[in-house]
Computed example of a mutant assay.
Amino acid sequence: MARIIQTGRMAALAVTVLLGACQTDSFSSNGSPEGVPIALESIDGAPPPVRTALINELTTAAADRKVELVGSAAQARYRVRGYLSTETVNGETKVAYVWDVFDSEQRRAKRLTGTSPGKVAGKTISASDKETLAKLANASMDEIAEFLSAAGSATPIQTAANVDSEAVAAQ
């Protein structure tokens, strides 16, 4: 168990070193995911070699989409926890994934789910299934980047209480 935790910490550190821990607390004006640091906290359901290989693929996919991954100990706007499993449908084994994106107050902001676009060789995924892991990472990071972009271009919602207090102040 300690080795798994150590592997996860080393992978998070590698992500931090690879992408840097440059922090910005404001969203880009064009609604892109740039400048919105996210921390990949965990990926459950995968053996350590698969987890490490997937983190490498996610790092590449994040860089391609200008998503800023930081280490799990770093300050981040969002924190992501992933869950993997394999499922067999009509004789074809695929990797099912869930990514829970949490805000800075540890509330789930988004849940992303799906299956890998490619099939797995055998009944379980292995670190050698690089094509499947790359497809999974690309599909996952597309969804995460889309979420970050939408969150960056969203304007604050005006609540009824705000409208009422503004109306009273105007009188």
Rank of each mutant, 00 (worst) to 15 (best):
A61N: 05
T59I: 14
M10L: 15
D129P: 00
S85D: 11
S140P: 00
A11G: 14
P49R: 14
T16K: 08
E166Q: 15
T93Y: 06
R3M: 04
S104D: 14
E105N: 09
D142R: 05
C22G: 10
G91T: 11
L112C: 03
S140H: 01
V17M: 07
L40P: 10
P47I: 00
E143V: 07
I4G: 01
G45T: 06
A76V: 04
E87Y: 09
K130Q: 11
L69K: 09
A160G: 11
S85R: 13
L69Q: 15
A21P: 09
V70E: 06
R108H: 01
G91F: 13
G71W: 13
V17R: 10
L19R: 10
I5E: 14
G82L: 06
S29R: 15
P49M: 15
S140D: 02
R111F: 01
A39R: 02
V36G: 03
Y97E: 03
K123P: 02
A134M: 12
Q23S: 09
A161Y: 08
T115S: 07
G91Q: 12
V70T: 07
V98C: 00
Q23V: 09
P156G: 12
R111L: 00
S104H: 02
D100E: 14
A73F: 11
T93C: 06
S29K: 07
I125F: 00
T88I: 15
V98W: 03
F102A: 00
Q23N: 07
D25C: 04
K123Y: 06
M1L: 02
A167D: 10
Q6E: 13
R108Y: 02
V163E: 06
G35S: 14
E131K: 04
A62F: 04
A160Y: 13
Q171E: 15
L136M: 10
R3F: 13
D103W: 03
P37K: 04
L58K: 03
R111A: 02
G31P: 09
N162K: 14
G152M: 12
